[in-house]
Design a protein around this nucleic acid. Sequence first.
DNA 1: GAAATAAGTTCAGTATATTAAACTTTTCCC
DNA 2: GGGAAAAGTTTAATATACTGAACTTATTTC
Lengths: 203, 203
Amino acid sequence: MTPPSPKVKGKSVQAAMPFDPTSNQFSRRLKQLRAERGWSLDALANASDVSRSMLSQVERSQANPTLAVAFRIARAFGMSLGELVETPGATSSLVVIRAGDHAYHYRSDQDCQIRTLSPLHLEKDVEFYEVQLKEGGALRSAAHFEGTREFLTVQKGKIRVESAADSEQLERGDSINYRADVPHAIVNVGKGEAIMFLVDIYR
Amino acid sequence: MTPPSPKVKGKSVQAAMPFDPTSNQFSRRLKQLRAERGWSLDALANASDVSRSMLSQVERSQANPTLAVAFRIARAFGMSLGELVETPGATSSLVVIRAGDHAYHYRSDQDCQIRTLSPLHLEKDVEFYEVQLKEGGALRSAAHFEGTREFLTVQKGKIRVESAADSEQLERGDSINYRADVPHAIVNVGKGEAIMFLVDIYR
DNA sequence: GAAATAAGTTCAGTATATTAAACTTTTCCC
DNA sequence: GGGAAAAGTTTAATATACTGAACTTATTTC
């Protein structure tokens, strides 16, 4: 019972390159998040209880935060540490096949109408739909590719979303995102038709 | 545009309780993983290039590893850092945002209200917004990161989208996508408010 | 344009993360 | 049981994470 072969053991490596890719990614991610929300270093410092100077150094890859600090930063952004550190770039492992037939796993029938809003073959594996469900209608999907996540927001009506064992009821304005690499379903449980927007994200 | 209210700011807290829940969780997780695989501290130390003593201290919550160290440990176990720090049970397979929930408002003024529908922890760099523009209102954005594309579909009202030199007019049901890595703007040119959904895709 | 305010960086000091080596405890044979 | 080897903990020294305050740079405001 031994772990996979150890790699370079010398400590000289660490001396030469004190930060592994993680840190740099983390720095970029942090910078981006803060920019998106338009927060100053000071604002984030207050929200996270991490000093302004530390944040500055981390963003510029001049310091390597501890888990505790990373955790506080994540919380300031309203997300878990896992969500914060999960590398969005390292997803290259699997290329999704997905031919031009974007609608192959959906059926468009009396109960369910799907309009594709996203142009096909975007650089990213993202698709964007508008879905209409007649009263009592349902959209049931088999498991998509591993790692797929589906995001939806209700524009009209009342629906129930089921993913694996989980189930949630949603009304106009509510949003939800869930794993789509398991069998899942969207059911119109209200009166009249239901309309929703739906984003599929593969990885 | 301020982050959610700061919590306890005093540093005395940190002195009294040097490790937040993260570390303890991490310690338990680490101990469990190592036990599951039947690895000794020494074996893990070799595989991860983290010292035996450090591992011991971390497992007993007597030290608070840096991200770099946590990363190396994760790799030794053949998993991503996100997978390692995300408590196995809490891997939310389903996240709901209620209509009234303003937690994800990141920007709001008289003319323009933006609701972030996707907490941006998705593996891909994708974000999803609902934008409301009052009559005459406009949303002007500086250039986003290189390679960013924005996709929008009009839910209500009449708008004009400007990206670099291009300009297009849209009505309910119309969709458009355009480069967002240049200065761009969305202007409400109709009567009454305009509502649209917006997807940002980075690469 | 100058003064004022905010945002970001650098600095020096302190706390602590990290390591190698010494030490203690457990496990395993005989 | 007793000795040996492995597993785990503690120690002392060093590197660096982290902070508050001083400083520099951009942004506003008049």
